[in-house]
Design a protein around this nucleic acid. Sequence first.
DNA 1: GAACACACCTCAAGCGCTTGAGGTCAAACG
DNA 2: CGTTTGACCTCAAGCGCTTGAGGTGTGTTC
Lengths: 145, 145
Amino acid sequence: MEILTIQDVSRRSGLSEPTLRYYEDIKLVGPIERDERSGHRRYRARDLDTIEALACLRAVGVGIEDMRTYLANRARGREAAAEQRDLLLRQAVRIEAELAAQHARLGYLREKASLWDARDRGDADAEAEAMRHVVAAVEKLGVLR
Amino acid sequence: MEILTIQDVSRRSGLSEPTLRYYEDIKLVGPIERDERSGHRRYRARDLDTIEALACLRAVGVGIEDMRTYLANRARGREAAAEQRDLLLRQAVRIEAELAAQHARLGYLREKASLWDARDRGDADAEAEAMRHVVAAVEKLGVLR
DNA sequence: GAACACACCTCAAGCGCTTGAGGTCAAACG
DNA sequence: CGTTTGACCTCAAGCGCTTGAGGTGTGTTC
């Protein structure tokens, strides 16, 4: 029955100390026990388990409300397994879309950079060429119109 | 010399109306002319040009301060071309890193989903197997320690 | 025993927007 | 000619944290 400081938990979970305090404020975790004298947070191993799971979800861009749902499903166990799976699959689909978007963004940046590179070198032909590539990349970005 | 409403600009740039107002508030663009009677914003073609450029930068995750730098470089023209190119390349590198991170995230979500799927089906063997995959995926996520 | 470092605490403000409430103006309808 | 519709306005609060200020507690050093 080990006791962990907020620093320990921060290091092991990858969440910052303010984030850990924040998660407690909004009752996503805890309430966490406190040291009588100092008022400092004292985490238990069970708290760490939960927090590590949340850290993974956060890393994949899951929002607070979905985290609450996740914890609730987890508490219900096998009974809510199908819902849990679907929640995770929906997130996976989201990430796939973002992945495609990132590719388009990268293309745009590279083309735009080479446009300014051509300008820097004073190469008018390369500049005109790069301009066309930028226009094409912007289309893929799907942002304008 | 066409006049554009905020709605026009929103549609063409892909930025929401509140975002356009916000950008004016923080003096990233404008000040934009107003209709005498109604006080509504009236955009000119030059405004739209700037805003479209900002929309692309925003789409690729460039922050407000870097946008300011970008606009300043652009105003300086060829003279600041090298700086402009470097700013864009730095962003490209950032996106590449995020791309790799997204792959890891996607892997984690897929494995975790199949873990809960196994639980849902009550397949203990598949569950144990999926658990190992999850652990491996978490490593790649690089979040816990 | 005083002074320091260090980990922790709380509280408030900032980021880059989004959402919503509440109100104004202009044209169109009955 | 009153009213509805629609696009616009401003202002305030919310999101999910991060950053910073200002203060307390504990353990080590001189």
